[in-house]
Design a protein around this nucleic acid. Structure first.
Lengths: 206, 206
DNA sequence: CGGGTCATGTAACGAGTTACATGATTGG
DNA sequence: CCAATCATGTAACTCGTTACATGACCCG
């Protein structure tokens, strides 16, 4: 009888009362701009919100229920074309407060994840030609995103008449997210091209 | 009886025979450089491998078992200090091939995730002062990482005598991953400082 | 009349995180 | 003697993805 006897019924309390999954704040962030139906939210979440967070609709609907239970959103029904009614969701005052609190709370230092860099880390075991092909494909992907993001930037600039949006305007958030995306894609593309140069230089030497 | 009758026993086959979780390739990537014990692998995975992939040891041990079942790694036991024997893992030829295949296979276009940018996207609902504080903390974090990465770079340059490593050397992978990390952190830091300038300019106007 | 869009949900699984668990040796 | 390190594993949970499910309307 030397071991420490532990409780047979494990009581896990590692989720604080106010802890919500990140997708909930993606939803609140969208609803803070304007009310939307579940379908519209699902469509918005299919393409990454703020360029760096996406979710399928299967994650959305339970999230909306949970947010409503907590009083952070409400909904109004209207007849839909199909077998189910359309629900238009609106953020509440409590929801807006929860979003603001979350937005400025320092996030725990989470490790970023990038599977492509992990592949690059092991690229030395593969054929250099195949590695070059991989990087060319990846570069193309980021080039395409850059073009898209530049288009978004022009749209935002045109919409706000040249001046950057004030820090209380919704466009401020778009502006921040977009510029992060632009910097990210530019840096990534430069890295891909640098890697291709390195591979080319090594190929010429041999 | 209008509905489509589906099989009562759902047969899910959406995982290909060779599909392995990403953490498995992080492990193989480490073992391709040199053999390591589970404990050493766990320590290496605690800090992100290739700067962009980390895992706790609880994910490691089942992964090692699975890799061994598939014949991609083997292990030798030696007596450990504690109640359990130390197992030193070695990658097999099949493991090296699987790693090389994975490394150059085009990854499915996954959406990157960045919770901080999502916060920034909703920062307009919060106090501008709190937003500025948030960005200062974040900038500091990236500045610290940059300093660390610059140190790694000097170490790598010193170790290889100035010349960049050839595309068949393990250091090539480190070199690629490190330069991605450097570009990423530089871009992120610049973005944080740009955002702080924007907030400061708006503050002066009011 | 067949496929796409609108519209909402549930089921099952895989991936990732946190907590539980054991126990010898080493250093302050 | 207490804490950290070495050393390995399991249990329980949350988060995220893929697949299943229904059905009306619109357009060609």
């Amino acid at each position: 009888m030397t071991g420490v006897q532990t409780c047979a019924l494990p009581i896990y309390r590692h989720s604080e009362a106010s802890a919500r999954p990140t997708v909930a704040y993606a939803v609140l962030g969208l609803l803070a701009r304007r009310s939307r139906s579940g379908y519209e939210l699902a469509a918005a979440l299919r393409e990454p919100v703020s360029f760096f967070w996406s979710a399928p609709h299967s994650q959305l609907y339970p999230t909306l229920s949970a947010l409503e239970t907590d009083g952070l959103v409400t909904h109004e029904q209207s007849p839909g074309p199909g077998p189910r009614a359309r629900k238009t969701y609106r953020i509440t005052g409590a929801g807006r407060r929860a979003l603001a609190d979350w937005a400025v709370s320092t996030p725990p230092p989470r490790a970023g994840r990038d599977e492509f860099v992990l592949r690059a880390y092991s690229a030395w075991v593969a054929e250099p030609d195949a590695v070059a092909a991989l990087f060319r494909t990846e570069a193309e992907r980021h080039r395409a995103r850059l073009v898209e993001y530049e288009r978004f930037r022009r749209e935002l600039v045109d919409a706000s008449g040249g001046a950057p949006p004030g820090p209380r305007q919704p466009e401020f958030g778009n502006w921040l997210a977009l510029h992060n995306g632009l910097g990210y894609e530019r840096a990534y593309l430069e890295w891909c091209e640098w890697a291709l140069d390195l591979l080319l230089a090594a190929d010429r030497r041999s």
